[in-house]
């Protein structure tokens, strides 16, 4: 566990040594040791434990049984597909709503634009469960609750994740070099051509990081499906919860968690959408 931390510490940093001179053996990279230890103990080790449980049976013997059981069950496969489907639809709807909002806001000339940006982001600071409860009450008032489970879940997801899509899009659009659009207009491109040939391609990084911020948490956000879907829409996250909760089958639960983990990291690698990860959460402040 501590090996990585020790090795970090053991690496000599020549320039610093010089400038430290007689100041002893202190190196600034040592400051990372507590965090390295913390990560090893509470991030890496727990994940290794998940891997261990996923590949063992109840008696601790090595097996692929959990994965075979998961993938040979029709319900599990359909749950997986439903999770991906819901995440995909939510992401698409969020994008369709958020892109015009971000575009319009980024074109506002007023110095007060940030107030509007804040207006869109502020609900994010209300407790997530409480916000879901608020929307649930409204759907109840409208008589939708319990009737249109699938639609309600999508509405709930979009409601909760919309700000995560608006922010990265807005930051990308506001940073964009406006002279490129002007150049396109000067060269005879009309509004639509300029948008589709210049603005949209340039905002792809924002689209990707926004989509990641919505798509990934959606797949496991069973709070929303429980609140809006009468617990009738099964998500892969809910399945993990049940396995560790009422079903208390840690091995199966770990296997599903591992599958989920693989899906997440593959999605990340494919899109390379990690770079702007903080733009959604971090810069809301």
């Amino acid at each position: 566990m501590a090996v990585s931390a020790k090795k970090i510490a053991a690496e000599p940093v020549l320039e610093e040594k010089k400038s430290c001179g007689l100041k002893g053996v202190f190196r600034r990279s040592f400051l990372g040791i507590p965090y390295a230890l913390f990560l090893a103990m509470f991030v890496i080790f727990p994940l290794l434990l998940i891997v261990f449980y996923a590949f063992t049976d109840k008696n601790g013997a090595f097996t692929f049984g959990n994965f075979i059981a998961f993938f040979s069950s029709g319900t599990n496969i359909s749950n997986l597909l439903i999770s991906v489907g819901i995440a995909f639809i939510t992401t698409a709807v969020c994008l369709l709503i958020a892109y015009p909002v971000a575009y319009i806001l980024s074109r506002f000339k007023s110095a007060r634009t940030y107030i509007f940006v804040l207006l869109f982001v502020a609900p994010m600071w209300i407790n997530f469960v409480l916000r879901a409860y608020a929307l649930r009450e409204i759907l109840n008032l409208l008589g939708l609750l319990g009737k249109t489970n699938f639609l309600n879940v999508i509405i709930g997801m979009v409601y909760d994740f919309l700000p995560f899509m608006i922010l990265p899009l807005y930051t990308t659009l506001i940073k964009m070099d406006k002279s490129l659009e002007e150049a396109s207009a000067d060269l005879g491109g009309n509004g639509a051509v300029t948008f589709f040939k210049v603005t949209l391609p340039l905002s792809v990084p924002g689209i990707i990081s926004g989509a990641m911020m919505v798509f990934l948490p959606c797949m496991s956000c069973y709070v929303i499906t429980d609140t809006f879907g009468n617990s009738k829409i099964p998500l892969i996250g809910k399945l993990i919860e049940t396995m560790f909760g009422t079903a208390s089958d840690w091995n199966m639960g770990s296997a599903i968690a591992l599958i989920m983990l693989v899906i997440m990291f593959v999605t990340m690698l494919c899109t390379g959408g990690f770079k702007n990860e903080t733009t959604a959460r971090g810069n809301a402040l």
Binding site: P46, L47, L49, L216, S220, I240, E241, A257, F265, M268
Partner: peptide, 14 residues
């Protein structure tokens, strides 16, 4: 990157 549920169950396991 990790899903909250995976962080949660892995820590609960430990």
């Amino acid at each position: 990157i990790n899903a909250e549920i995976v962080i949660a169950v892995s820590l609960a396991l430990v």
